[in-house]
């Protein structure tokens, strides 16, 4: 959580928040009217291809960028409401988990803070974090919009999860295409901008990652196990996800 706050002291990171928010919002707006799934809540998210790329490359700036970008999508789309708050935090997680879990989601994690297209570790980290971050976001948004009466949790959480996973899996092509130029040519990988070396794997990081992962999985799959109270499981999942994110 530390860097997510410290980054606000760095001009380039602040601009990066604005730029990534604007890209995300522009993509959301361009496709919002085209293919809504549940109007006012979620649509076929072509913009989903940006999620992991922003998270990994821009770190905290990507996380804030996605959060603000989603909010701006609501503002220009005319669907500003209490669900926008849920969208803000949910999209924050989509950018926050990739960079915090990259080195910590043992045994799937990468050893160095890098994307190596030929490295199996990079792929395992990318795919596992894609699933976890997409599901975490889905649980968080799903619960909040269910609580305020927008759409039932069982429907919306799965749509959001699947939507984000698909977007991210296609988005790996984007990451492959832009990683090198962003890092070496433009010097805009967040660790270089902030001049830090991200903390290597720690017990705390592993614990946080697995708390989030447990919450995310339980929250999405609980509904398939008969006899379990979806309500109880999903709210406990959310607590796991929030607790895990906070210690990451």
């Amino acid at each position: 959580m530390r860097y997510a706050l410290e980054m606000w002291k760095n001009t380039r990171m602040i601009v990066l928040v604005a730029v990534s928010a604007a890209i995300y919002a522009a993509a959301l707006i361009a496709f919002k009217t085209a293919i809504p799934l549940i109007p006012g809540v979620t649509e076929v998210r072509v913009a989903g291809i940006f999620l992991m790329t922003f998270g990994i490359l821009f770190g905290p700036a990507g996380a804030w960028g996605l959060a603000i970008g989603n909010l701006i999508g609501d503002i220009f789309g005319g669907t500003l409401g209490p669900a926008s708050l849920a969208g803000f935090f949910g999209n924050f997680l989509l950018g926050y988990l990739p960079y915090t879990m990259w080195l910590n989601f043992f045994p799937f994690s990468e050893r160095d803070y890098q994307w190596n297209v030929k490295g199996i570790k990079s792929w395992s980290a990318y795919i596992s974090i894609t699933v976890i971050s997409s599901c975490s976001c889905a649980v968080l948004i799903g619960l909040m919009v269910d609580a305020i009466g927008i759409v039932p949790y069982e429907v919306v959480s799965r749509i959001i999860a699947v939507n984000n996973i698909i977007g991210n899996l296609i988005g790996v092509v984007l990451l492959i295409a832009v990683y090198d130029v962003t890092k070496n040519q433009l010097g805009l990988v967040w660790t270089d901008i902030m001049g830090i070396k991200p903390d290597s794997m720690s017990f705390r990081g592993i614990l946080g990652s697995w708390l989030v992962a447990t919450g995310a999985m339980a929250g999405i799959f609980a509904g398939f196990i008969p006899g379990l109270s979806v309500n109880l499981v999903s709210w406990s999942s959310l607590i796991f996800i929030i607790a895990g994110s906070l210690i990451l």
């Binding site: 001009t11 601009v15 730029v19 890209i23 291809i49 296609i170 295409a177």
Partner: peptide, 30 residues
Amino acid sequence: ILSRFGKFIPLAVPMFITAIRYTNRLSMAL
């Protein structure tokens, strides 16, 4: 829809690069 996703890459990459080339210029001006 699926083939649309695939065709999005020739659009998304230039979008991404054009936009983030902006970042350094904007920060400098700022």
